[in-house]
């Protein structure tokens, strides 16, 4: 299968709540461009919305990087949410259901994990956090 067109990596800076909307719209558009069905594109957009909000909430600013990925016949989309904020003291707890230090629902990271296929958090205290998630179109 030949790719129909080249989809390029996109970087969306996240500094205010309008950027959450911009990031998830760019993500949805990329998912659609990569041939994802609409329902899967909505899963991706929802995950991006959560990740971008986490950046604002915990680090004030950061970026969402959207990249097309390939693995053999499968195409997918990678979302990396990066910030140089305080870092997550206990990554294990942050991905547990019901845990939140923001006083909100606590569904953020565990919810994102359920929406996507691959999920990875790298965080070091004082340096920042990168959450990388992938969704495969299969």
């Amino acid at each position: 299968m030949k790719p129909l067109e080249v989809t390029e990596e996109a970087c969306v800076p996240v500094e205010s709540d309008i950027d959450i909307v911009t990031a998830r719209m760019r993500g949805r558009a990329m998912a659609v461009q990569l041939g994802f069905p609409a329902a899967m594109a909505t899963l991706v957009a929802t995950a991006i919305s959560e990740l971008a909000r986490n950046i604002l909430l915990y680090a004030k600013r950061g970026e969402i990087v959207l990249s097309p990925i390939e693995n053999g016949q499968s195409r997918g989309l990678r979302v990396a949410a990066r910030d140089h904020g305080p870092g997550i003291p206990d990554v294990g707890r942050a991905v547990e259901d019901g845990f939140s230090t923001s006083g909100r629902l606590g569904l953020g990271l565990p919810g994102v994990r359920r929406l996507m296929d691959d999920f990875e958090v790298r965080s070091s205290l004082g340096e920042g956090t990168t959450v990388t998630v992938k969704k495969w179109n299969r």
Binding site: A39, A41, T42, L43, T46, P110, G111, L115
Partner: peptide, 13 residues
Amino acid sequence: QPDVAFAMVHMGL
């Protein structure tokens, strides 16, 4: 919408 309901259920909302 159906797609939104699908995502909400996946998230646990």
